[in-house]
């Protein structure tokens, strides 16, 4: 009892590890199983059906494009936002602003999505705006809903940058703009990339947003998974889920490569 070895101390992690194995790792294998054995017996039927339909690939491409556009807009908005917040002198006010930006999430996502749709319908009827045109509204919805996921990592990285680097840069004669470009931005790359992944994945797989904010032309892969799921086509849904997994895996890989080019350190998430 007195001399406890390393192993028993790491036992603290046991509930966590067990939980993750049961609820994260095993379900992933379930997906694999259902994709190939769903209809009893090993078969490529579902996988084959997916890969043979050209329109299906158009849907994958469309989902990627919409998610990419939304994520890039999120970066474009969240970066200056996070930067401005980090520049506020009082820490408390920083937290307050962050809190205020994240707090809308206390109102359920679906509720906010429909509120946005009602709002834009109202604006369309009464102003010159034309937002209820499928993809534009969908992109707007994705940006509004996922902005906090982009904001937080960027903010954390920016506030983590030691002031001394900025001072060193200034001392060496760099203008604030050059300092930003050569010191702050490269150092916040890892935040941008984790933020990008945090926005891109839910966006590429969204179903209720594209259902309520989009139109016929924004049919996305998440909607397809959801339809198959609700119609109890588990093996079909499992194939789509695997495709999504691969898409996400590839984007993580690419994101990590990008962050490695810029930064010799292992950046990003995973």
């Amino acid at each position: 009892m007195k001399k406890i070895n390393f192993n028993s101390r790491s036992l603290f992690a046991l509930p966590y590890v067990l939980y993750m194995i049961i609820f994260v790792v095993i379900p992933l294998f379930m997906l694999l199983f259902f994709a190939f054995f769903g209809d009893g017996g090993f078969s490529f039927a579902e996988v084959g059906a997916f890969f043979s339909d050209g329109s299906q690939w158009a849907t994958v491409g469309r989902s990627l494009r919409i998610a990419l556009v939304a994520s890039l807009w999120c970066i474009l908005i969240a970066y200056p936002l996070a930067y401005s917040i980090a520049k506020i002198k009082s820490k408390t006010i920083q937290y307050m602003v962050l809190m205020a930006l994240v707090a809308p999430m206390w109102i359920n996502g679906l509720l906010r999505t429909i509120a946005l749709k009602d709002l834009t319908t109202m604006l369309d009827e009464n102003t010159f705006l034309h937002l209820t045109t499928g993809e534009t509204l969908l992109t707007l919805g994705l940006i509004i809903d996922y902005l906090p996921f982009m904001l937080m990592p960027i903010y954390l990285v920016i506030t983590g940058i030691s002031k001394s680097y900025l001072e060193v840069s200034a001392d060496l004669g760099a203008s604030p703009f050059i300092t930003f470009l050569k010191v702050t931005l490269p150092l916040s790359m890892s935040g941008i990339i984790s933020g990008f992944l945090m926005v891109f994945t839910p966006a590429v797989s969204t179903y209720y947003m594209s259902e309520y904010l989009g139109d016929q032309s924004t049919f996305m892969i998440g909607e397809q998974l959801n339809t198959m799921f609700t119609k109890d086509n588990k093996s079909g849904a499992a194939v789509i889920a695997l495709v999504l997994l691969v898409l996400v895996g590839v984007s993580v890989f690419i994101a990590n490569r990008i962050s490695r080019i810029g930064n010799n350190k292992k950046g990003g998430i995973a």
Partner: peptide, 27 residues
């Protein structure tokens, strides 16, 4: 490995996570 697994639910699409959970519970 643990930290990598920890990233899975964060990075994974929530619809995939949910569906995996459903399969688990059903099975």
């Amino acid at each position: 490995v643990t930290m990598a697994v920890n990233q899975l639910p964060i990075i994974n699409a929530d619809i995939v996570t949910s569906f995996g959970l459903v399969l688990l519970f059903v099975s």
